[in-house]
């Protein structure tokens, strides 16, 4: 069963085309990573999926339903949830308030409380800091909060935009351990990463994006052996 299906997605900022007709699919329970250099269009892809930029052409289907023209808040209600680049926690609000906002679309307080318990069990450090402003957390803790906040929405498809960016090596390992955990729980994941080695190690399949086009795709192990990928992204 396909969770996400993208066909011919084209996005332009003025005259510059950031995405030139990309095709991409994520199956239910699958972990897919999207690799590419800076400016290749990775973040634009996620922004288009979340409805933050309007595509010029193409279709986005979530669980078979067309979500191409929907506003961001409606896409979230359909279960496509993004952890944005740079974490983007609400710095002036407390950790608890950030988590509550993650479950904004949920109208069942008992279910929200259960989800919060699961998030706090997964990230015990957030429990210790529940009533502190999110802006006072370290970068790694903010990333945990951003992921926890997204899990509060009970996503059908979770988009992670550069979750390891700007974190200390130990924290990067911790974040990838969390991603592996989510994968083991069969959460459907689309991961955008600069850290190609770690992303390919955790993903089932991978796409390589170069100047707005998909230039390579396939099982992650095969993409990891591609000479071009090794040269460009794996420091070979």
């Amino acid at each position: 069963m396909t969770a996400l299906e993208v066909a011919g997605l084209t996005v332009a900022y003025g005259a510059t085309e950031a995405l030139r007709g990309i095709d991409l699919a994520v199956a239910e329970g699958e972990t897919v990573c999207l690799l590419g250099a800076n400016g290749a269009g990775k973040t634009t892809t996620l922004r288009a999926l979340s409805g933050q930029v309007r595509p010029r052409a193409g279709h986005i289907r979530l669980g078979g339903a067309d979500i191409t023209a929907l506003a961001p808040h409606r896409i979230v209600r359909r279960g496509l949830v993004q952890v944005p680049e740079g974490r983007q926690v609400f710095a002036g609000l407390t950790v608890a308030e950030n988590l509550t906002l993650g479950a904004w679309t949920l109208r069942d307080p008992a279910e929200a409380a259960r989800r919060r318990e699961r998030v706090l069990a997964r990230f015990p450090r957030l429990r210790e800091r529940l009533h502190q402003p999110a802006g006072a957390l370290s970068g790694g803790e903010q990333q945990m909060l951003a992921i926890g906040r997204a899990l509060m929405a009970g996503p059908r498809l979770l988009l992670l935009d550069e979750p390891s960016m700007g974190l200390a090596p130990l924290m990067v390992a911790e974040i990838f351990a969390v991603i592996a955990e989510l994968k083991a729980e069969r959460v459907t994941l689309l991961l955008v990463e600069q850290n190609a080695a770690a992303a390919l190690a955790v993903a089932d399949r991978a796409y390589v994006l170069e100047t707005g086009r998909i230039t390579l795709s396939g099982p992650a192990w095969r993409v990891a052996k591609d000479p071009g990928v090794i040269a460009a992204y794996l420091g070979g």
Binding site: H73, V76, F90
Partner: peptide
């Protein structure tokens, strides 16, 4: 209030509030 939390979220960052499912 719950609505007030949404108001404060929009005040801080309307784009990210949208990613929470809030209709800014």
């Amino acid at each position: 209030s719950r609505l007030g939390l949404g108001i404060r979220a929009v005040a801080e960052n309307p784009d990210v509030a949208g990613l929470m499912g809030i209709d800014a």
